[in-house]
């Protein structure tokens, strides 16, 4: 395994970099460059997070955000895939939907929250709506692009092997577009996560966004920074663990990366 050594070295470098950031943060705090009520020290943040975990505030909120995210994201990905497929297969659908989606994408996810509250009231439906509106367009566009970039001889070969209609989509177009679709899903996951936290920030009684806002209302900078770190961590976790694995499998299968799993 010739790859192992550079990988270990890269991880070590990353660890060193994170430590450096931590030292910088501590230095800024120790030197009193910012007022202490606006910037907590790393230790204060760690203590506050431990408190939140111990008094049973943190975990239910993490859980609530993740559950909302997963439900909203599945809905969003399903819609994005179907619409992207339609765009990829029909020039008419593409020209109509693409400009709409590009337009919608210019809105930051927080901008969807007011209209979501007006449409759906205070329930979780409003949050799902924000997730879908934040992430679906990116996944639809990636799917459509993936399909329109399929080498034409794949489709030709499939058709002269007797494939047509729905089977042409499911057996050829979607798998051929898979690398691009996975890229879109990764992007969609990040955008959807923005959506959940934005929505919770403005109207919710549980969730990471709620804890962020509660921290601000209590002037608890340690809680604000701590919850931000948890939000980053949870967002990265799925991206790095699940999607990175899927992406790697595809790269191996397509021949873009060496196969290290079957040695």
């Amino acid at each position: 395994m010739p790859e192992a050594k550079p990988l270990a070295r890269r991880n070590l470098a990353l660890l060193g970099f994170l430590l450096l950031l931590l030292v910088l943060w501590q230095a800024v705090w120790s030197l009193g460059l910012l007022p202490s009520y606006s910037l907590p020290s790393p230790a204060q943040v760690a203590v506050r997070l431990a408190e939140l975990a111990r008094d049973g505030t943190l975990w239910p909120s993490v859980q609530a955000s993740v559950v909302r995210m997963v439900l909203g994201f599945v809905l969003s990905a399903a819609l994005g895939l179907v619409l992207g497929l339609a765009m990829g297969l029909s020039a008419l659908a593409d020209s109509c939907l693409r400009s709409l989606f590009l337009g919608l994408q210019t809105l930051p996810s927080a901008a969807w929250v007011p209209i979501a509250l007006l449409l759906f009231g205070l329930g979780d439906a409003a949050i799902y709506f924000v997730i879908v509106m934040s992430s679906m367009a990116a996944m639809a566009i990636a799917t459509a692009d993936g399909i329109s970039h399929i080498p034409p001889h794949y489709l030709r070969a499939a058709r002269s092997l007797g494939t047509s209609g729905v089977a042409l989509s499911t057996r050829v177009a979607l798998p051929a577009a898979l690398p691009s679709i996975v890229t879109g899903i990764k992007l969609g996951w990040t955008l959807g996560w923005h959506g959940v936290v934005s929505a919770e920030l403005i109207k919710s009684s549980i969730g990471l966004g709620y804890l962020l806002n509660a921290g601000r209302e209590l002037n608890d900078a340690a809680q604000v920074v701590g919850i931000m770190l948890v939000t980053i961590f949870m967002g990265l976790l799925l991206d790095r663990v699940l999607f990175a694995w899927v992406e790697r499998r595809i790269r191996v299968r397509w021949g873009f990366a060496p196969d290290t799993s079957r040695e």
Binding site: Y154, R156, A157, S160, P175, R253, G255
Partner: peptide
């Protein structure tokens, strides 16, 4: 195009998402 006329292309158009057997069985 139709399955009565099979084409072998100048560049082989095998499907990378299938293994060789599944390509041949396609």
């Amino acid at each position: 195009p139709g399955p009565d006329r099979a084409m072998i292309f100048q560049e082989p158009a095998l499907f990378p998402w299938l293994n060789i057997e599944d390509n041949v069985a396609f």
